[in-house]
Amino acid sequence: MVTAEVETEQIQLIKGDITLLEVDALVFYAEPNLELGSGFGTAISIRGGPTVKKELERLGPVGTGEAVVSGAGNLKASYIIHAVGPRFQEENTEEKLKTTILNSLRCAEEAGAKTIAFPPMGTGFYGIPLDLCSRLLVELVSDHLKTSASLKEVIICVQDAREFEPFRKELSKVTG
């Protein structure tokens, strides 16, 4: 795990594997039917054990932009926020992504989470451009932290240098 090069008081940018983090809540970019599927979903089902999947059976389906909370099984996190964001260049991607991030933050507050970890929401497989995602995520998270109830710390967890850079740039705007 590489720790942050850039951090504001409450936002940390790190390189690592989000499913191994010890946080109250971690965000999983989910499908509307809440199937965990491959990628981070594989990591959650194998490392988290079968209880997560069981719980999800009664939570779906979920509309685009919405988010629901499940337990995290044997993961070090306490909850998983399953956030169903826009996919594959669908219409109004920006608006929908914004709603998805805000709903994830709302879920975290409702669960009383103090720490939350976000992946680069919808980039990669779902095709959300990295610059759009980094701009929205950093903007919305920093705004939210100004008035947040329980959330004290937000981690943005990326995998490699390619993903790190755009978030670093956006964060440096916030830190000034």
Binding site: G37, S38, G39, F40, T42, A43, I46, G124, F125, Q159
Partner: peptide, 19 residues
């Protein structure tokens, strides 16, 4: 194709092998 692509995007290998 979706399964394998997502594995490679998110876990860094196309067969979902954990570290």
């Amino acid at each position: 194709v979706a399964t394998v692509s997502k594995d490679q995007w998110e876990l860094g290998n196309q067969m979902g092998v954990l570290k």
